[in-house]
Design a protein around this nucleic acid. Sequence first.
DNA 1: TAAGGGCTTTCGGCACGCCTAAATCTTGGC
DNA 2: GCCAAGATTTAGGCGTGCCGAAAGCCCTTA
Lengths: 220, 220
Amino acid sequence: MKQSTPAAEDYLKTIYGHTEWQPNLITPSVLAARLGIAPSSVTEMVKKLAAAGLLHHVPYGPLMLTPAGLRAATAVVRRHRLIETWLVRDMGFHWDEVHEEAEVLEHSISDRLLDAMDARLGHPAHDPHGDPIPDANGAVAREPAILLAQATAGHSGRVLRISDKDSAILRDLATDSIGPGSALTVVEALTVVEPLTVRLPDGQIRQLSPAAAELIWVSA
Amino acid sequence: MKQSTPAAEDYLKTIYGHTEWQPNLITPSVLAARLGIAPSSVTEMVKKLAAAGLLHHVPYGPLMLTPAGLRAATAVVRRHRLIETWLVRDMGFHWDEVHEEAEVLEHSISDRLLDAMDARLGHPAHDPHGDPIPDANGAVAREPAILLAQATAGHSGRVLRISDKDSAILRDLATDSIGPGSALTVVEALTVVEPLTVRLPDGQIRQLSPAAAELIWVSA
DNA sequence: TAAGGGCTTTCGGCACGCCTAAATCTTGGC
DNA sequence: GCCAAGATTTAGGCGTGCCGAAAGCCCTTA
Ligand SMILES: [Mn+2]
Ligand SMILES: [Mn+2]
Ligand SMILES: [Mn+2]
Ligand SMILES: [Mn+2]
């Protein structure tokens, strides 16, 4: 099984991430798109990961993590999210600035340093985007959530997480005082012609673009 | 010139390190030994670094950094030493535990994060081993120093730096209360048959192995 | 000054991780 | 049930960074 390379870790993490919030199996082409690489490159790495016992894969079929692959994936996710949390809480980064840095450091820091960060931060349960941080055993505490883009008018809930994929949207949301933990009520659901409208606890109204609504998850 | 890889950064840093305390030119075989790789590998990388304008090299001759190479090297050294300082001051590492971690992270952290560390630490001038931290422009404040192994009986001075190459010796020295800043006087110089003997400010006597004496630099 | 030993370089190879182009498989629509 | 479009895999290549073995250079020593 050897020890995994940065590239392998990113494959596993991305496969895991695909099913973290929606129960869909990921295909090689989708994985390639998420990683920004050619599908043929995925085929090669998939063979190696399957040979290492980290992935189930029948040719032309979808990709599934084995128990060992799941462990490896959550370990990387834990690193990523703890690093993001540390960057925001200790190093003065904003939540829209941490993703790229964590994308690199997650492959570099030692277990020793990871533990030191975890202890220093008081074993945080969530990262700056609201994503749950797996514990040292890989256990993840996930709350039922629905995508804001799919919420119906009248739905009330707390923002549980906001995907960290798009920095610009994160900055806009921060300007609008919307972040993990924010309470909100859907005034008008998203439609083809209308943006989504929500009301904040102080009565203020906010309109959210479809792109933003696709990144925000609220409690059910 | 492109942006340098971790391997190239380690070559430049190691070449720089060779001449930081002694004015000797480094040869390919010595560089190979320091990096723990085969001499033929050095030949290849040297060609690339020379082509990139970072190194002067005539075939069969020694290696010399160009001004651009020196800038690149001090930038890596700055990263390495700031990271070590941060690990000790903020993360609870001991000075004998930081070298390996910094060896990896020096290639991973962004300029943004480096600046944040530097500011948080108050722009430190020295790392935990007493090595000067180059400033953001690459300027290094170096004090004249002599190797303890070469100090004569009666020599008094402060420990300026201790090489971080050997963790075991660092631990022993910590046990003996010897570290950067320690004042000491040489009671008996190092000879082929005798270990080095020093006296600490409180009058205590310590014997140092030849290996240790070769790693400690004191003020002249 | 002629070796010969020690460095250095060259050569052929390998693992990794990516690519494009060309097969090949699968499957939905007819 | 067939077939073509789309997804996947195969094949051939490239850059990086390492290796060991063999060739070549240099310089000291006799
Ligand atoms: Mn990554
Ligand atoms: Mn995150
Ligand atoms: Mn390094
Ligand atoms: Mn150091």
